[in-house]
Design a protein around this nucleic acid. Structure first.
Lengths: 335, 335
DNA sequence: CTGAAAGCGCTTACAG
DNA sequence: CTGAAAGCGCTTACAG
């Protein structure tokens, strides 16, 4: 069009620039219209070393959508990213375990400016540290969500359950003496924390640690259900259940119903997360609500901050709160 | 390392090549290890004109995750994409309506090899055609999911409800004479289809079209609930409801319960999709199950096919099936 | 079997 | 205010 590509570039990146004459701008506009010109983002990215896309790593080899927890978290990430004009990229996951997934994703990598890595599912503490170190080593900006407090100078959005607010404690406080913990997976960092807190409070209220009422439900309703079924038929007694996800509480409800046990008359149940279906369960579930969406937003915010300022190491903790509904009752302390 | 970048490139893209000597390969390996070399995917993409990423367009300005329908569809897309080594990209959506969203996303575009565009929510038929034409004009390979059969040579994964399998018909067949249709939004293409089918069967069974029992619930349980509430207090009578999503059926359940109406004794309810919670509703919901996940997979498959062969225009239709549970009953036809 | 050269489509100093 | 040049990090013919 008789205009150099440099001029076009300058104009397109700042339509108000004074470095390009009005007359020239006009001619460029016309040409763009005629040629149906669309800038090639890849070339731009190669040149600027920025893509405007953020990768999301879920070190887990299964469906990404449909779990209430992940959905909330991803929605939070997405809402913040989109509001700031960034795109969200999911990488293929082919690893057999968490660090392998991350390693492979990093190998493929470099189509994005930074990464948000989430979750403790299928990750013990070693895996998490391993993942963080791989990321650190790669030099890629990143932030983490939903991991326990890690001892690195990295961005962390932490969903915390303060020891004193643990549903386990609440159940003991309510007079229950036989509390079942329905945890996730034996090695997962989150599950480990719940077990530690459970033990702490059990020791506190009963005078002794007692692991016979710890069950693992894999965060699946079906698994939780059979775990509770097995416990019942094995003769484990309990008057309350603390499930570390609402989904597992759902499974517990089913197992209890089958055993002819009523909620809350026979067994109190507390869930976790306040998933959207929990208020619709019958009876409506008492649960520890966690600001999962906001944690997702914060993870995005932290990452964008380091992308824009270079600074990292921002830790934000989110506490939750117990939401009382109809699945729990207070028990007169006998003996 | 005394090796040209061309040689490295050839080796990396085909480790078994004979065009690079074993000795040289070894030296390259060592260098890669030492330098912690990671190929820059952007440069590669610029050069090969392929990124290995597929964009997903949901022409809707809201949260992407957490709806049972979209979750299934996205999981289907993701599973196929990931299995073939592709990444999934979500673009920021900032448009105020569907074609605007698509237009903006196309403008930003070109960081991906192709696009999957989904859904009829907030889209009437004009919008859909408009979207398809924008895409066609852009020259970008794409495929569509969950749209009505469109008259273009494009990849389509269609979730169809054959007229003869409409739940509305089933309810009439079961002896009901006052059937309420709980549709989505007045203009949405999907909703329009449900209304057409409803009218067809109403005419057929009652001898006259009757729009007084058509309600819109916006695919939200809360909206559906108040729609049914309003209908009841307005004196609309009915003995059955056909909701075009399970989520809206949930809302209907609530409205009925509040009005003291029992399911199915007083009112039969049929939902749609067989969302994962529908079997847990009380009573468990009779619903028209649709292979949403598979439709998502097919959309991905179709797109990858055109990426790899250049051919397009593959249409695949998915029918569903009625799943009978406990929310419906047969009514003796009186009069 | 290996290297030098050109090109992918932008942006960024640098001249003029 | 505008253009020529170099560079982003790869790949792809093409020589040798």
């Amino acid at each position: 069009v008789g205009v150099s590509s440099a001029t076009v570039s300058i104009y397109l990146n700042d339509p108000d620039t004074t470095r390009v004459g009005e007359e020239t701008k006009r001619r460029i506009d016309v040409a763009i219209e005629e040629l149906d010109y669309r800038p090639n983002m890849i070339a731009k990215a190669l040149s600027t070393q920025r893509t405007g896309v953020v990768g999301v790593m879920i070190p887990y080899d299964g469906p990404l959508f449909g779990s209430s927890f992940l959905d909330s978290m991803l929605s939070g990430i997405q809402s913040e990213l989109f509001a700031r004009g960034y795109s969200m990229l999911f990488l293929p996951t082919k690893g057999e375990n968490s660090p392998a997934v991350v390693r492979n994703q990093l190998k493929v990598a470099h189509g994005y400016d930074g990464v948000i890595i989430s979750g403790t599912r299928y990750c013990d503490l070693d895996d998490l540290n391993h993942n963080v170190e791989q990321l650190l080593e790669s030099g890629l900006p990143f932030s983490t969500v939903n991991m326990p407090v890690l001892d690195y100078e990295i961005n962390q959005a932490i969903l915390r359950v303060p020891l004193e607010e643990s549903p386990t404690k609440y159940l003991y406080e309510s007079g229950h003496r036989e509390v079942l913990l329905l945890s996730g997976r034996e090695k997962d960092a989150d599950s480990v924390t719940s077990v530690q807190q459970y033990r702490h409070h059990t020791l506190n209220y009963l005078g002794a640690v007692d692991d016979s009422r710890i069950l693992y439900g894999d965060f699946e309703d079906t698994v939780a259900r059979s775990a509770v079924q097995s416990a019942i038929s094995a003769g484990v007694t309990f008057s309350a259940i603390h499930a570390i996800s609402d989904t597992m509480a759902l499974g517990a409800y089913e197992a209890l119903a089958e055993a002819g046990l009523r909620v809350p008359e026979d067994v109190s149940v507390v869930g976790m997360n306040d998933s959207y279906f929990s208020r619709r369960m019958s009876p409506p579930l008492t649960t520890y609500r966690r600001p999962i969406f906001r944690a997702g937003q914060e993870a995005a915010r932290g990452l964008l901050r380091t992308l824009e300022t270079g600074r990292t190491g921002r830790k934000v903790q989110f506490d939750g709160e117990l939401v009382f509904r109809s699945s729990t009752r207070t028990v007169p302390v006998s003996a």
